[in-house]
Amino acid sequence: MERWSGYFQLILDGALVTIELTLLGSLLALVMAFVAGLGRLSRNAAVRALATAYIEFFRGTSIFVQLFWAYFVLPLFGVSLTPLQAGVLALGLNVGAYGAEVVRGAVQSIGKEQQEACVALNLTRWQCLRHVIVPQAFVIMLPTFGNNAIELLKGTAVVSLISLADLTFQAQVVRAQTGNTMVPFITILLLYFAIASVISLSVRGLERRLTRGLDGVRS
């Protein structure tokens, strides 16, 4: 037991890295989702094209390749990132591309009559988006954002490939040092599941809070 406690400490350290990656990655993904999702709805054709290119590129290539680019290829262009920075960048950009389509879909699902009310009340396009459309669309985005965050959490395992000591990396270390596969991998299985559950529950809680008072206005 004495022996295992040191190894559990290793795995807990890994859990902290995984949580950090998930939080920072989700934050970047959220920002990118809104920037690119709203960009796709812009009246400016260049902005639309840029947003579409970003979304298609990051959805259409593997997260693994993107991570290697961020960590191994960018330095060749003079941009050196720490493993954590590279991980957050790759995960955030990748998941943000999926999130962008969620933002676009949710914004478009808000009826045209809401926009017409904005025009009649003389709000600018931005004011309408900010105060009328996005607050309603956000509630629709939430469940899918929750899914995306969990996908991102699971995606964090690939950063072990660039030597970032996350959960999966530490489990490998423990396995290599003890020769035992079952204990470390059951432990991280449970930890991943626990973190995913926390994400699930918080998103559901937030959803409940935001829909209060709307009483079936939206299905």
Binding site: E113, Q114, E116, A120, V132, Q136, V217, R218
Partner: peptide, 8 residues
């Protein structure tokens, strides 16, 4: 408007 278009 006919359908009110209030902000729900």
């Amino acid at each position: 408007f006919q359908l009110f278009n209030l902000f729900p």
